[in-house]
Design a protein around this nucleic acid. Structure first.
Length: 830
RNA sequence: GCAGAUGUGGCGGAACUGGCAGACGCACAGGACUUAAAAUCCUGCGAGGGUUAAACCUCGUGCCGGUUCGAUUCCGGCCAUCUGCACCA
């Protein structure tokens, strides 16, 4: 009987004491750097989701070692963060203590699963020797104008009392605590990620990320092409600048809308006749949470700004200006031209407030070929269809706006008439550029990164404010700027950082002029430490630089990075941004940090729902290791389904995997001598090596495990396995179930460790069967199977096949015969 | 609404560039071993028909249609579920 407890403990102790898996500092060898996302050491301990990702890359890392690479497969802890701080507020335990305790627990758990991590390079983002370099990077960003302080409306979590990045607001509530998020004006440190927006899109071409990851990042960055156009404000020399992606619809712009926060209102306070009403609307809008404002199916609201009007620069008609919260101050210019006939939101608004709807695009007729004649026909059609739009008595009974940019023809639009929408866009941009009323513009949805948190448990932002000199970075030789030890972790009244109460720490001298100055009391967000941790692993103990040039040169880029889809628009994008910056200032040698990025599916509870305490469906990895062992746990997580898809936990299935491992263990009972594969199993061995080797590369671990099971079934049928076969089998299985396979290999007389034994190779010619069974079909339906020799002469096969179905084709006329070599024979009879 | 994915037995899932649908596992059933049970080993297992038993036949990969000698796979159109984003002009 296999005693997994004893065996697993034995090997783990050996591995971690000897540093079996530590990367070598031999830079002459070919390297491979595999990375998994380091965990946040929460109080709950490891989640069963972690081992899914970790086992997968552990398998690849182990295979790479056997293939002779110098492998770096590190781990660490992303240990700054709210839970430790919230725990501190409640229980008055310093986050440092909780964090340390949790890390120790995590380390134990990770070791108990036998991952081949290089523990000598463990990093911890809360270690001053680590965050020294996080702060250093921030200072470089500041020096290069990419970190700046700005007062702006931010997402403010009413629960955590912290400003949040857009990415941290989910459905209008705080991603972490679930409290509503409101808008608040606050002075914040910002990082100019927008400066890198285009490169973050373009350079995706050079990396091997899953398409869905690329798509999601591109989507998030949200590039759109359009134009900015100035609309004159009637009776002034002033303009209202708008952004639109559909400048071709400008002849249909019947009113303007500005965001509630737009400066126009302040500027024309005195001319606006209903200023009270407008101010009232502004106030209401400010009080709404982001969620309320963005809520769908909500009735549009707004107020016409009376006393000022705009002039449509193409029709020269005066049109009203409205204020409404469906226009966002944070996107474009905070103002739009409304074209209700061709925009869903404008349409809804126009309907509600009874504003004119003028169609200027018509769906392209099927046989439209862009000539005069077609156009005249088209115009007649339009006259009939939209006669009501142009009279004084506008009925506005258009049932829905026409918004398809790929399928429209401009009408009722002067010089654009008859053009397809795409051409019309170009032509109108030419026009507005020529007449200096606007220009072609690109916009991104991506916003600059709000980098301040009003929290204690984060990296202090190494900046000092001096009345005379303004913001001055802490001199680099004074880094790390340590977090002061405090007792009171409560945020301040107005959502200030707990550090704001530490007068002694705050008061300092200006590094620039030596006068009195005060420290920044905000800290960095959790994403800071994780934005560059992969660099630190390359040279984890360097105190002169974040990593040495040589180490960076050798180990960059990361060959394979696996992580969760939930980090696609946060961590993954942020770290690409930091990396590109570090590349620009000559710190790192590559443009992109990760050559390849894959992602694992989530593990759900056995009821198919997300694991949560409240649902009572949480599986604790410790219990699983205790009951089934680490190897069975690993094999099961790889077997449970396609790696990139969600899977539900099943206790029955893991039992099956343990049974499989027991069967492997018991194979030693019918072990026989033999230093090469027996004739019986030779083909199977070569095929298996091929299959498992490619499956691992493609992350099709589930079918690898199936292959192992099939092999074991075959060995059981013969009640025989020789030493050569057993050795290869154990090697292939080793990355999946490292403990048992090492033990077994030792038991059958292996002298070296499998961990570095050369990965088995296969002979392609030996994977091909000499005799093949192929189906014989009549009209695509299988009627018989015949056995043929590989590459058998076509005529012979046809003859054989016809014999096999002789009775069924007798007397029938053969219309067609199809033979696909070594695959299938199909006959069509009349 | 936009983007991405998924849909195959009782269940999790296989099926390489179109070529025997259901590998492998779970569950279930039968048998062997055992005083007995568990464990283990062996066998069967999509549905319907057919046969003493086989052979064999029909249907079957979300739905409708198409291309093809042949479609889980390709094309067109739907439906459902999941994930991310979303008043982004």
């Amino acid at each position: 009987m296999y005693n997994f407890k004893e065996v697993e403990k034995k090997w783990q102790e050996k591995w971690y004491a000897e540093g079996t898996f530590n990367a070598k500092n031999d830079y002459s060898k070919e390297k491979w750097y595999g990375l998994v996302e380091f965990p946040y050491p929460s109080g709950q301990g490891l989640h069963v989701g972690h081992p899914r990702s970790y086992t997968a890359l552990d398998i690849i890392a182990r295979k790479r070692r056997m293939q002779g690479y110098n492998v770096l497969f590190p781990i660490g802890f992303d240990a700054f963060g709210l839970p430790a701080e919230n725990y501190a507020i409640k229980n008055h335990v310093h986050p440092k203590i909780t964090t340390e305790k949790n890390i120790n627990h995590f380390r134990e758990q990770l070791k108990a699963l036998g991952f081949s991590f290089d523990w000598s390079r463990e990093v911890n983002t809360t270690d001053p020797n680590y965050y020294k370099w996080t702060q250093w990077i921030f200072i470089q960003l500041y020096k290069h104008g990419l970190a700046y302080k700005a007062t702006m409306p931010i997402n403010f979590c009413t629960g955590c009392k912290v400003g949040l990045a857009n990415e941290e607001v989910v459905n209008g509530v705080c991603e972490r605590c679930g409290s509503p998020v409101v808008q608040k004006e606050k002075s914040q440190w910002m990082l100019k990620i927008t400066e890198y927006a285009q490169r973050l899109i373009d350079d995706l071409d050079d990396v091997n990320f899953l398409d869905k990851i690329k798509a999601q990042q591109i989507n998030w960055i949200g590039r759109s092409e359009g134009a900015e156009v100035n609309f004159k404000i009637s009776g002034t020399d002033d303009n209202l600048l708008i952004y639109t992606t559909r400048p071709d619809t400008i002849f249909g712009a019947t009113y303007m809308v500005i965001a509630p926060e737009h400066e126009l209102i302040k500027k024309y306070k005195d001319r606006i006749t209903n200023i009270d009403e407008v101010e009232e609307y502004k106030k209401k809008a400010a009080l709404k949470s982001d969620f309320e404002r963005a809520e769908l199916n909500k009735e549009k609201t707004g107020v016409e700004i009376k006393g000022i009007k705009a002039i449509n620069p193409l029709t020269n008609k005066e049109i009203p200006i409205w204020i409404s919260d469906y226009v966002l101050i944070t996107y474009g210019t905070g103002a739009i031209m409304a074209v209700p006939a061709h925009d869903t939101r404008d349409f809804e608004f126009a309907k509600k407030f009874n504003l004119p709807i003028v169609p200027v695009i018509i769906e392209k007729p099927k046989d439209y070929d862009n000539n005069r004649e077609s156009l005249e026909l088209l115009e007649k059609e339009i006259d009939a269809k939209f006669a009501y739009c142009f009279g004084d008595d506008q009925k506005r009974n258009m049932s829905e706006p026409f918004t398809d940019v790929n399928n429209g023809i401009a009408v009722n639009s002067d010089f654009l008439d008859g053009l397809e929408s795409k051409d019309a866009i170009n032509k109108v941009i030419e026009y507005i550029e020529e007449h200096k009323i606007g220009k072609r513009t690109v916009n991104y949805k991506l916003r600059d990164w709000v980098f301040s948190r009003q929290r204690y448990w984060g990296e202090p932002i190494p900046m000092v404010y001096c009345e005379k000199c303004g913001w001055v970075p802490v001199p680099e030789e004074e880094l790390p700027l340590r977090l002061p030890e405090i007792d009171d972790y409560e945020p301040g009244e107005n959502g200030e950082s707990p550090l704001a109460k530490q007068e002694e720490w705050i008061n300092t001298t200006c590094p620039h002029c030596g006068g009195k100055a005060r420290r920044e009391t905000d800290t960095m967000p959790q994403w800071a430490g994780s934005s560059w941790y992969y660099l630190r692993y390359m040279d984890a103990h360097n105190d002169k630089a974040l990593a040495s040039k040589e180490a960076l040169e050798y180990w960059s880029p990361i060959d394979w990075y696996n992580g969760g889809m939930e980090h696609t628009t946060l961590h993954l994008l942020y770290s690409r941004f930091w990396h590109k910056f570090l590349y620009d200032i000559g710190v790192v040698p590559t443009k992109e940090p990760y050559a390849k990025r894959t992602s694992h599916g989530m593990i759900l509870g056995s009821n198919g729902e997300k694991m949560s305490k409240s649902k009572g469906n949480v599986i604790n990895p410790d219990d699983i290791v205790e009951e089934f062992g680490a190897d069975a746990f690993r094999v099961y997580e790889m077997f449970m389904g396609p790696f990139d898809q969600t899977a539900s936990w099943s206790m029955e299935s893991i039992r099956g995997c343990m049974k499989f491992l027991d069967r492997v263990w018991n194979m030693q009972e019918f072990l026989v001598d033999g230093d090469k594969y027996s004739e019986k199993f030779e083909k199977m061995m070569h095929k298996a090596i091929k299959k498992v080797s490619s499956d691992i590369e493609e992350m099709k671990f589930n079918t690898s495990v199936a292959t192992f099971m099939t092999m074991v079934n075959e060995f059981y049928k013969e009640k025989q396995i020789n030493k050569a076969e057993f050795t290869t089998f154990l090697q292939l299985l080793n990355p999946f179930a490292p403990h048992m396979t090492e033990e077994l290999y030792q038991k059958i007389g292996g002298t070296e460790e499998l961990a570095y034994k050369a990965w088995p190779t296969y002979d392609e010619t030996k994977t091909i069967e000499d005799e093949i069974e192929i189906p014989v079909q009549i009209k695509g339906k299988v009627r018989a199977t015949i056995t043929i020799k590989k590459d058998e002469d076509e005529e012979v096969v046809k003859q054989k096949a016809k014999e096999a179905i002789a009775s069924q084709i007798e007397g029938k006329k053969i219309i067609k015969e199809i033979y696909v070599k070594n695959k299938i024979y199909n006959i069509v009879i009349g």
